[in-house]
Amino acid sequence: MVPLIVKKLIPDKVYLQLMYYHHNRRFINFRKPQSFSEKQQWLKLYNRKPEYTIMADKYAVRKYIEEVIGKQYLVPLVGGPWNCSDEIDISRLPEQFVLKCSNGHGVEICSQKDKFDFEAAKKRLEKSLRNNLFWYGREWPYKNSKSCIIAEEYLGNDAIDYKFYCFNGAPKYLFIVTNRFQPNGPNGDYFDMNGNHLKVRDIEFYNNPTPNSLLPSSFEEMKTIAQKLSQGIPFVRIDLYERKEKPIFGEITFFDSSGFSKFDQPDFDYELGRLIKLPEKKYN
């Protein structure tokens, strides 16, 4: 593992070339990127807008969501924000809750408070607070963000993730993640916007054995939400949940698996790439 101090010395473009070669055994053609993975690396360098920092922040984005689609789509907060885990008074939280870092992968699920190892959760949250995601994949929206901890209402361990792949305001594909916390999970399945299950598979996931039962009741409303939240962005993933047959906002992700996703059908990487229309750029 490369020490953080060394990572910080490597220029973004060089670092991305090294990371891309590590994952794909080839280098990025920054002048004429073609694939989904290549174009996402290009966007990391050349599509940096201040508003992306707010949109990628799980706490700051809440105001944006309220303004664009309405607060009824937000998971209710039950605590926070806190600058560190020592500020959390667990006695003031409900029996069930979810702790999240606003800019990181730290998520702690409490489904039963008397069995929740709060001290262990605090240590993991503190580690996540210290680890700025920018330095792993050079995802620019995280670089200048200051992470905090929030507590959200518990949606259940079996909550299904609905991830819409959107291109300049047009949702084109839906990736549904199920059984995330099950022994044989997680499962991942792609659908088109007509609800057809696709044979292509992300190599990190096996398909759900019953994919035709996965489409949400609020599929059409979800598509409308994804369309509104992705306006003017070359590529973005809009993540939603469903509760009582209504969509619930999850998060906005600018780089799918940091731009290093792999598919069992490589042509799909290029199909997604063709959908990304890159803005004009003067090359360095």
Rank of each mutant, 00 (worst) to 15 (best):
V6W: 05
P11F: 10
K13Q: 03
Y20W: 04
H22G: 13
N24W: 11
F30G: 12
E38S: 04
Q41E: 12
L45G: 05
R48C: 12
K49A: 07
P50K: 07
E51K: 11
D57V: 03
Y59W: 06
V61F: 10
E67F: 01
L74Q: 03
V75N: 10
P76Y: 05
G79M: 07
I88N: 02
R92C: 12
Q96M: 06
V98W: 07
N103F: 05
H105Y: 10
V107E: 05
E108K: 11
K115R: 15
K127D: 13
F134D: 10
Y136S: 15
E139N: 08
S145F: 02
K146G: 06
S147A: 13
S147I: 02
C148D: 07
L155M: 14
D158P: 00
I160S: 05
K163Y: 04
K172N: 11
T178A: 06
Q182T: 14
N187Y: 13
Y190T: 00
G195A: 09
I203M: 01
F205G: 07
P211E: 03
S217N: 15
S218C: 12
E220T: 09
K223I: 08
L229M: 12
G232P: 05
G232T: 02
D239G: 05
L240A: 01
L240H: 01
K244F: 14
E245L: 14
P247R: 09
I248G: 00
T253H: 01
F255G: 08
F263M: 12
G273Y: 09
L275F: 09
L275C: 03
K277S: 12
L278F: 06
E280T: 14
E280Q: 14
N284G: 05
